[in-house]
């Protein structure tokens, strides 16, 4: 009896497992968007996507990574649309033929965050001066170190400040190789300085002693661009639905939705489509 009974039991269990298995219940139309942790973790996508899906019936699956990784996902053809923030990297993505074009969507800005009592006296309106002071004081500084757009902006700022990171870095400069949230958590736990995008900072809850020290410097401008992955390169790309997402983002409706998004009354992202937008 046992063998038969056991077989039946096993079969039943498998059948149940298979039935219960994710019945791939996504409607017929969905696209995959590779984007950045800043857009996901700031809650922007939670605000935008339901509106887009309601309008078009296209579901959007967002894979949130650093900008560098998100572009790699696009290069491999594992996403239909890439929505990131590193202008230089995006332009080379287009040049390499992985996208047919890039469009401006919005911008926000970076801010220098640090301990409220500011031991390195970095507070002010000049990001370069702030970095020089942090380096001079060898005050703890957390770097993303993950090839993200924010990491790229940080590296550019050190270079612009005339500091050779390779020469001055030491125990005070902590490269963690993780997203914005973990970087903020690390800085909060060690009272360190760091460069963060304002959106993630506003939605971040574990602030501890941290506060914004530098903001408003024009160098801290942080533009986001959107690109459809080139269907000529990756034929399975859902070009029509992906293009619909790109078009919606830069349409008056999409741009309005971007500017509506607020946390605690503060606007996080500023629409910029059409302003010197294409490349």
């Amino acid at each position: 009896m046992d063998v038969l009974r056991r077989r039946v039991l096993i079969l039943a269990a498998c059948a149940a497992a298979l039935l219960a298995a994710p019945a791939a219940a996504e409607g017929d139309r969905s696209i995959t968007v590779a984007s950045t942790t800043s857009t996901e973790q700031s809650g922007l996508f939670g605000h935008l996507l339901p509106r887009f899906t309601a309008r078009t019936g296209i579901a959007v699956k967002v894979v949130a990574l650093g900008t560098g990784q998100a572009l790699d996902v696009g290069r491999r053809g594992d996403a239909d649309v890439v929505f990131v923030h590193d202008r230089a990297a995006e332009e080379s993505f287009v040049r390499e033929g992985f996208a047919t074009g890039r469009q401006d969507v919005m911008y926000n800005d970076f801010v220098v965050i640090g301990p409220r009592d500011d031991p390195a006296r970095a507070r002010g309106a000049d990001v370069l001066e702030a970095l020089r002071r942090i380096a001079a004081a060898r005050a703890p500084f957390v770097s993303r170190g993950d090839r993200s757009g924010t990491h790229g902006a940080e590296l550019r700022s050190w270079a612009e400040a005339g500091l050779d990171l390779a020469a001055i870095r030491g125990e005070w400069y902590r490269e963690i190789g993780q997203g914005m949230g973990p970087a903020l958590n690390t800085a909060s736990a060690t009272n360190a300085y760091l460069l963060a995008d304002r959106g993630t900072w506003l939605s971040f809850k574990n602030r501890g002693e941290l506060a914004i020290l530098v903001e408003g410097d024009r160098r801290l401008f942080n533009p986001y661009g959107v690109m459809l992955v080139n269907p000529a390169r990756h034929p399975h790309v859902k070009a029509r639905d992906g293009q619909a997402f790109v078009d919606w983002l830069v349409s008056p409706e999409g741009q309005g939705a971007v500017s509506e998004y607020r946390i605690g009354g503060e606007q996080l992202f500023f629409p910029s489509a059409g302003a010197a937008g294409r490349s």
Binding site: T37, Q41, G179, G181, K205, R207
Partner: peptide, 9 residues
């Protein structure tokens, strides 16, 4: 992991 990253411990 996501909520940890967002600092919502």
């Amino acid at each position: 992991s996501l909520e940890t990253q967002k600092g919502d411990l």
